[in-house]
Every structure is written in C-alpha cells, then in structure tokens.
Simulated scan of single mutants.
Amino acid sequence: MTRVLLTGFAPFDGEAVNPSWQAVRAAAAEPPAGVEAFAVELPCVYGASFAVLRAAIEDTRPEIVVCAGQAGGRPDITVERVAINVDDARIPDAAGAEPIDEPVVPGGPAAYFSTLPVKACVAAVRAAGLPASVSQTAGTFVCNHVFYGLAHLIATELPGIRGGFVHVPYAPEQVTGRSQPSLPVAEAARALREIVATAARTRTDLRAAGGATH
C-alpha cells in the first residue's frame, strides 16, 4: 500500500465552502486500489497552514503528498508545475494577514518544481473524461505558500517523499448568480483519485507538451 496524504483548505474570502477540502475528503474516503489515503484540512492562513501540513506529515508518514486548493475562475483541474519563494497577498488570509513581497522561506531557493509526475497526472485526468492542464503558477497566496513549504521540506529534510499541488475550480453552488466556471465536487474528487493513482505508479513523467505562451 502506498501511503498518501491529501490536503485541502478551509473556506476563505467570504465563501461558505472550499471545494478543495470537499474533494480531498471524498477522494480519501474512496482511494484508488493499493493506496492508503489520509485527508487533512488546512487553514487558509500564512504560516499556520504549513504548520498543520508539517504536523500531518509527521503523524501519517506518507510517501506522497498531494495538496489541493481552490482556483476560482479556472475552468479545469490544474496540476501545478512550480512553487515560488514569495508571499504577496492580493486579499487578506483568513487571519487578516496580507504579506507583501515576503519570502516563504528566508534564504530559500527562488523556486522548486513539483516532484509529482505533473504531465502524466494531467493525461490521466483527461483520459478519465475530465478537463485538466499543467499550470505554470500557483499564485502568491496561501496555496503557493503551502506548495513551496512542502517542496522545501522535501528538498531539505524528507527526500523520500514526493509531493505537489493541484488546483480545483469553484463548486457549482459557489457560482450561482455569477458568470464563473465550475466543476462538481464529485468530479474534482474523481480527478484527485486519478492523480493519486498516477503518482503512486509513475516515477518518470511523460514527455509531452504542457507549456504556455503567457
């Protein structure tokens, strides 16, 4: 059995729900064959979110960590390629913090690449009939904060773990009355199961186009 830790976020910015946590919880409840999955909810707070993640890693001792977050406005499942060492908040986090141009880890590298097979994960989600793409940015809010913190932890302390980040669209109930793309939580959970299964069996990523022009 491959031990996998899945994380999602609590609601933020006035939303009643966060589809990342809803999808993670559902995916972990029915994991792919050969996977033992654990689900943990992270607060949408700089600093505290990574502290909860680190404690969850210590508690569950996973081989793979897949963190998920909400990307309102994106139409598909986006598997993140890179985390950058900057916190730059356009809106306050759930504790009211708004860091501007601060490093996630002082003195850390400018960026880390995901250690998940990003393109293979995208291909698996698409093969399951769901929309997915490679993302070149996880933003500079708490999602990127957690992604960079995880990558730095893997690079400096836990090289035996592989991990990365996935963004999911709004849930349908979040976009009632406004023109924004959405994806049912059950479908987002199905995509996460495909990503987990692919990460568990894949060490060498696909060599396939997944770039962007802007």
Rank of each mutant, 00 (worst) to 15 (best):
15 E>Q: 15
17 V>R: 13
18 N>R: 06
18 N>P: 09
20 S>F: 02
21 W>E: 12
22 Q>I: 10
22 Q>R: 15
23 A>Q: 12
24 V>A: 15
24 V>H: 05
25 R>A: 15
28 A>C: 05
30 E>T: 13
31 P>F: 02
33 A>F: 06
33 A>D: 14
33 A>K: 14
36 E>K: 09
39 A>W: 02
41 E>M: 11
42 L>C: 08
42 L>S: 12
43 P>G: 09
45 V>I: 15
46 Y>R: 03
46 Y>C: 07
47 G>N: 13
48 A>P: 01
49 S>G: 14
49 S>R: 09
50 F>G: 02
51 A>D: 13
51 A>I: 00
53 L>G: 10
53 L>A: 07
54 R>L: 14
55 A>S: 03
56 A>G: 01
56 A>N: 07
57 I>N: 03
58 E>Y: 00
58 E>Q: 05
59 D>L: 09
59 D>V: 05
60 T>W: 10
62 P>T: 08
63 E>F: 07
63 E>T: 11
64 I>P: 08
67 C>T: 10
67 C>Y: 04
68 A>R: 00
69 G>W: 01
69 G>K: 03
70 Q>L: 15
71 A>W: 04
71 A>P: 05
72 G>M: 00
74 R>K: 03
76 D>M: 08
78 T>C: 11
78 T>E: 04
79 V>E: 11
79 V>F: 08
82 V>H: 04
83 A>S: 11
83 A>V: 03
84 I>H: 06
84 I>W: 02
85 N>L: 04
87 D>Q: 15
87 D>R: 15
87 D>F: 00
88 D>R: 07
90 R>T: 10
90 R>A: 14
91 I>R: 14
92 P>Y: 00
92 P>D: 00
93 D>K: 09
93 D>Y: 01
94 A>K: 08
94 A>P: 00
95 A>K: 05
96 G>W: 03
96 G>C: 02
97 A>N: 13
97 A>K: 12
97 A>V: 04
98 E>F: 03
98 E>K: 14
98 E>T: 15
101 D>Y: 01
103 P>F: 00
104 V>L: 06
105 V>H: 03
105 V>I: 15
106 P>Q: 01
107 G>L: 01
110 A>R: 15
110 A>I: 09
111 A>K: 07
112 Y>P: 03
112 Y>A: 02
113 F>M: 07
113 F>D: 14
114 S>Y: 05
117 P>E: 05
117 P>I: 02
117 P>A: 10
118 V>L: 11
119 K>A: 11
120 A>S: 15
122 V>S: 12
122 V>K: 03
123 A>Q: 13
123 A>F: 03
124 A>K: 02
125 V>L: 14
125 V>D: 09
125 V>C: 09
125 V>K: 06
126 R>N: 11
127 A>T: 07
127 A>W: 08
129 G>C: 13
130 L>I: 13
130 L>M: 13
131 P>V: 06
131 P>R: 04
132 A>C: 13
133 S>N: 08
133 S>A: 15
134 V>M: 11
135 S>T: 04
135 S>V: 05
137 T>Q: 06
138 A>H: 04
139 G>K: 03
140 T>F: 02
142 V>H: 06
144 N>Y: 10
146 V>T: 04
147 F>D: 06
147 F>V: 06
148 Y>P: 00
152 H>D: 11
152 H>M: 07
152 H>G: 08
153 L>A: 08
153 L>M: 13
154 I>N: 12
155 A>M: 07
155 A>L: 11
156 T>M: 01
